[in-house]
């Protein structure tokens, strides 16, 4: 496996995603002799995982079973160990398209955080692009380097442990795109511009607060960036389920018996005790949903 290339069989050293049902997933590092406990029982890596096909059903010790999935940046995003607040797939998708990322793109990112977006960027820019990512927190920077190595994408990424607002990205004139997810992005706009190619590029800044957005937009305009646009994208999940709605009893119909017999036909036989009811297949919204993640501000650096 690799996060940038599919393979069919699970191998020693892979990261496999165990799907426990009901959209509950967990990441497992596959190692000879290792075991993983799940609520369905234990998974023995040597026999249950290694050399099995990705996507296969694995029976655990208690007779329960799970599916083992090939890692993708999207699955990693929902299973990764949080060291910071992370970007989720909905925002990542928008960032990727609006920054015009594709194979070969050179991207600068800060901060690296937990590496949720980094993995998605690496997937998109492989096999010829490169990611320069800056994280000022030493422990986080070291941890993410380790993860990139484990996920076999380390040849595509350089992690720098420095303060992007003071020291920039460590590269100049190479980037097609810059992504900022830091508390004071306006302080990094100058460095972002310097990191970008002479021929121009795209910039994105992610901020939860509108005051941050305002300062960033001002800094972007002052530095001569164009097409400054701020937007917000929200995911709405629809739960598919059947719903039964009762029909009121209007009493006996003196004219004809057609309406009552029709209702009886539609009602399932089991509901005979009840008055007539109708079953529809519809979706219901979740009781609560994330209402705000962050504002995404995009801009274009013109040719200089």
């Amino acid at each position: 496996m690799s996060f940038i290339e599919y393979s069919d069989l699970i191998q020693d050293g892979d990261v496999a995603i165990v799907h426990l049902g009901h959209n509950s997933v967990t990441a497992v590092k596959v190692q000879h002799g290792a075991q993983t406990q799940t609520r369905f029982g234990v998974i023995r890596h040597s026999t249950d995982l290694i050399s099995q096909r990705y996507g296969s059903k694995v029976t655990c010790s208690k007779g329960g079973w799970v599916h083992v999935l090939h890692p993708t940046p999207e699955l990693w995003t929902v299973t990764l160990p949080h060291r910071t607040q992370i970007l989720y797939t909905t925002d990542i998708a928008m960032v990727t398209m609006m920054l015009e990322l594709k194979p070969g793109s050179v991207v600068c990112e800060s901060g690296t955080g937990s590496g949720s977006l980094s993995h998605a960027i690496l997937r998109t820019i492989a096999p010829t692009g490169h990611l320069h990512t800056v994280e000022f927190h030493q422990q986080r920077a070291e941890k993410v380097v380790e993860e990139f190595k484990e996920h076999r994408v380390d040849h595509l990424v350089t992690v720098r442990n420095q303060d992007v607002c003071k020291d920039g990205f460590g590269v100049t004139g190479v980037a097609d795109a810059v992504f900022l997810d830091i508390p004071s992005p306006w302080e990094a706009v100058g460095h972002a511009k310097a990191a970008m190619k002479k021929h121009g590029g795209r910039l994105c800044s992610f901020s939860p607060c509108i005051e941050q957005v305002q300062r960033t937009c001002q800094a972007l305009t002052e530095r001569g960036l164009e097409e400054v646009r701020t937007l917000e994208v929200l995911l709405r999940v629809h739960n598919v389920r059947p719903v039964t709605l009762q029909l009121p009893d209007f009493g006996p119909d003196s004219d004809s018996s057609s309406s009552s017999s029709q209702a009886a036909e539609e009602a399932p036989p089991s509901a005979a005790a009840n008055p007539a009811s109708l079953k529809i297949r519809t979706t219901t919204p979740p009781r609560e949903m994330p209402g705000h993640t962050g504002y995404l501000t995009f801009a274009t650096k013109p040719r200089t």
Partner: peptide, 27 residues
Amino acid sequence: YTKLKEQGGTVNLMLTDTWLRHYQVLP
């Protein structure tokens, strides 16, 4: 969604849409 659930062979089924809002940002 219903047919896939009946037939099996898939996991992580999600029915979604996204909501997009643009902002005017001026002093």
